[in-house]
Computed example of a mutant assay.
Amino acid sequence: MTTEPALYPSERLTQVTEAVRVKGIDVLLLSPGPDLRYVTGYDAKQLERLTCLAVPAQGDPFLLVPQLELRAAQASPAGDLELDMVTWGETENPFGIIKKAMGDPHYVALSDRMWALHVLQFAAIFPTASQHLASAVLSPLRIRKSAAEVAALKEAGDAIDRVHAGVPNWLRAGLTERQVGAKIAEAILAEGHVQVDFVIVGSGPNAASPHHEVSDRVIEHGDVVVVDIGGTMPSGYCSDCTRTYAVGTPPDDFTKYFDVLYTAQEAATVGVRPGVTAESVDRTARRIIDDAGYGEWFIHRTGHGIGLESHEDPYIVEGNTTPLQPGMAFSIEPGIYPGPHGARIEDIVVCTETGYQRMNNAPRELVIV
């Protein structure tokens, strides 16, 4: 196994079964993805061959796996659970096996990211069942991280901080965004991630496009460069951190709003504590940026949850009245994007019993290279 057992405790399956009952769901069906990994620790391959964890409200859960994937399933943390593994061969119908075991349920919850290929076949074998999202059952559990999960997020945060520490070595006038991005991607893996999830190197006007990624634009002297990077660790938990750089002396108008952004990001972070709402954190950052006259250029939410997915609950946005609770992990990443350039500062933060803990501690100030 590649992860600490505490990340995927055996009692989690019991907790999920109880949540299925409380929600009035007849059966929860999880295909490969973050939900299946959360419940069992099994990072199954997403294939046309069906792998599916069935958690009925009544009866014992079981994991349906293709015969050729059985050894992988047994070698995963799922192999340490008291969980029946049912295999199927190449000429068998896996949906028929689940149909036989489940009968005719009225309410079925399916993985949010289940392929339509499988969703439609479940609809066919359960024609009278209403389908629901698995997140209705799992999000209330996944939204609060355990101590082991927080430790995994801190490990991820430290790793991506080390990558940002190297960015000034690779960010140079005359190189393209793509060339710099390739160096960063190599470093993400070298610093312990098993997967590069995204690399954004937005220079000059591209810094005003929050999800720009990379292009063949040549970085010029005087450019502002937004670098937003993240990956997945062996634990399954994700990193995500944004810093803003300048190649040489930045424009005067940029410096003015970057100082506002820095203040807004810091204020939103220190305002995190149990009981405050997700939207109130967004309002804190937005109010500072609005009052300084840059509100029209803050064009996205302040943050998103993070864990086994880069984006998950809770979302730090107006309208989300969810009170923050200890263990909730999310980004705080206000940005200002007026057009000729732009800026964003992002840290992952965990709500604690008394306030907050940053998962990222690389310098937040503008780095001039």
Rank of each mutant, 00 (worst) to 15 (best):
E11S: 11
E11Y: 07
T14K: 15
K23G: 03
G24W: 02
L28G: 01
P32F: 07
D35H: 12
Y42A: 02
K45H: 09
Q58N: 12
L68F: 15
D84K: 14
E90H: 07
P94Q: 11
G96Q: 15
G96F: 05
D104H: 10
P105E: 05
L110E: 01
R113Q: 14
W115S: 14
F122M: 09
A124W: 06
T128F: 09
L133Y: 11
A136K: 13
V137I: 15
S139I: 06
L141H: 06
I143N: 04
E149Q: 15
A152T: 05
K154T: 10
E155V: 10
D161W: 08
R162L: 13
H164M: 03
G166W: 08
P168K: 03
L171C: 09
Q179M: 06
V180N: 04
G181V: 05
I184A: 09
A185D: 01
I188N: 07
I188P: 10
L189Q: 13
D197R: 08
P205A: 15
N206D: 13
R217N: 13
I219D: 04
D228M: 06
G231K: 06
M233P: 08
Y237G: 13
T242I: 06
R243E: 12
T244S: 11
F254V: 03
D259H: 06
L261S: 12
Y262P: 00
E266C: 07
V276D: 06
V281W: 01
R283N: 09
R286T: 15
Y294S: 07
G295K: 10
G295W: 11
G295L: 10
G295M: 10
R301C: 08
I306E: 04
G307L: 05
E309N: 14
E309V: 00
D313G: 04
P314Q: 03
I316V: 14
G335L: 09
Y337V: 11
H341F: 02
G342R: 05
I348H: 01
G355S: 14
Y356P: 04
N361V: 14
A362V: 13
R364Q: 14
I368D: 00
